[in-house]
Computed example of a mutant assay.
Amino acid sequence: MRIRKFFERLFNWELWNFYLLYAPIAPVWFWYCFKSKAFWFFTPSNPTITFGGFEGESKREMYNLLPADVIPQTIYIKPGIPVSELQQKIKDAGLEYPFVAKPDVGMKGILFRIIEDEANLVKYHERIPVRYLVQTKIEYPIEISIFYYRFPWQKTGIVSGFIEKELLQVKGDGTSSLKQLIDKHPRAKHRQEEMELRHSHRFDRIIPAGEIFYLSFAGNHNRGAKFINLKNQIDESLVNVFDELSNKTHFYYGRYDIKTASIEDLKQGKNFAILEYNGAGAEPNHIYDCRMTLLRAYKTILHHWKVLFEISRYNAQHGYPYWTYKRGRKYLRAARLHFKKLEKFD
């Protein structure tokens, strides 16, 4: 079984470690650093977001830039406050269970949780070591990602990627245990350590026939979500929605994560909520789950890096200077320490 899994990972580049996947094209990234004469060449790409939105940016910072009607109702909680104060904040905000909790500064779905009741909330609050947010659980049925970029000298941008997300899940057959279903799942079986950490106490449970059991509620590729390519749905009306949003926020490059009632509603600019958006560090995740060859995936990534470089260079020449090496190193080191702390409690 282990040998079989090894060869499945070896011949499926989508399962490769991040650093292994990007190592062959890393010299191109460093060429842009050299060409810009700035190690953090991407920092002016999104001038209204710290570090260009590459890593370590606050969700609060992003939400404050967006219209209130397109984001979930959200409150921010300091770690360690008395439970009674926490409960009062939630009551005052009118939030009802179930709702979402996640770190204000987070990544890769770390410590993302659906809070079902007060016991869940108290357990989460006592565990998390950093400021976090509590927000309405958006019930729209469709979760999607939009990769958008716009050159600052142009009014109209480009939607280069459009995908629908299917959360990591198994479907019961009435006879197999959860552990057996995980072992047969094409993606979950490669995530044994994570599955044991989250679900080992339920491994023996028989999942009824037809019942969907969610293994993760985070719609990230690194959390096992499946992506369905919707590139044929990209049209002028979709671009117009994100032109309007991005012009308001001076957002030039990155990815929106959204829930919506339908694709048509999204194109009409209604019945959708932005869960978050990611800037310069956003991966063009439409390379996954669409039968791309590795060569074509590299071509897509390199195209986006070139766009990132050109946007950043223009903004640097028009009032938004590159971060110094010292400033960027200090910021990134603090962000990495923050994420290591989160991983210990995930």
Rank of each mutant, 00 (worst) to 15 (best):
L295D: 11
D173R: 07
V134R: 06
I311T: 00
G52Q: 00
F251P: 02
G53L: 00
N232M: 11
Y76V: 03
K326A: 13
A273M: 14
Y148Q: 04
P208I: 11
A26W: 14
H199P: 02
L245Q: 02
I142H: 15
I301M: 09
L266F: 09
P129V: 09
S312E: 02
C33E: 08
F227H: 00
F51S: 00
Y148N: 00
A101Y: 04
Q192I: 14
S176H: 12
E166P: 06
K179R: 15
D235E: 12
A280W: 01
K330W: 05
D117F: 02
E118L: 06
Y148F: 14
L275Y: 09
I207K: 00
Y331W: 08
H190W: 08
Q135E: 14
I301H: 05
V307H: 00
P98T: 09
D289H: 12
I3Y: 14
R131W: 01
G52N: 01
K270D: 04
K91R: 12
Y76T: 02
K344C: 02
S246E: 05
L337D: 15
E211S: 08
K5T: 09
E193H: 10
A261H: 13
K189V: 07
R113L: 03
I77A: 02
D173N: 15
H303M: 08
N220C: 08
N247E: 15
P129N: 08
Y19F: 11
E193G: 06
N271I: 07
Y140C: 10
F112P: 03
T136G: 02
D92I: 11
Y322T: 03
G319I: 07
A225R: 03
L178N: 02
N229I: 01
W40V: 02
A101Q: 05
Q233T: 09
E264I: 07
K108Y: 14
Y325G: 01
V105S: 04
R296Q: 13
K78F: 07
E118M: 08
Y253V: 03
I212A: 06
A273V: 15
R127V: 05
F51V: 00
Y76H: 03
H201V: 12
L121R: 09
P186T: 10
R205Y: 12
S45N: 02
F213D: 03
N46G: 04
K179A: 12
S36A: 15
P44V: 05
I158Y: 03
N120E: 12
P27R: 13
R187C: 02
R113T: 07
I212S: 10
G269S: 09
G319Q: 05
